[in-house]
Amino acid sequence: MTGHASAKSPLKMYFAVWATLLVFTLVTFKVAFIELGPFNAVVALVIATLKATLVALFFMHIWHAGERLIKVAVAAAIFFLFLLLGLTLSDYLTRPWS
């Protein structure tokens, strides 16, 4: 038997995460209609990242994963994604003619 599963039911946590995700969705949707200048994008991305983190940590069980390896895999993916975006931007943001 997988003992730890029955020890404490995670159901409450699942529903809490779900509710938070829905609230975040509503917030991001509403905020988009308010003029915040560049901060519209910032808010949208921050909320999206919070939501993604919640899904990854609690629904995908990274939080409880005893193993570092999985966290390393996730970190590697994010790191290389930022390499792709960042180094490409390094070209686009410094072109003197565009």
Partner: peptide, 21 residues
């Protein structure tokens, strides 16, 4: 993964970026 634009030095990328690459 950090060097790819050395294939694009004369293709028209930013010279600053080219320096970094």
């Amino acid at each position: 993964f950090l060097v790819w634009a050395h294939h694009m030095f004369v293709a028209g990328i930013s010279i600053y970026s080219a320096l970094v690459f």
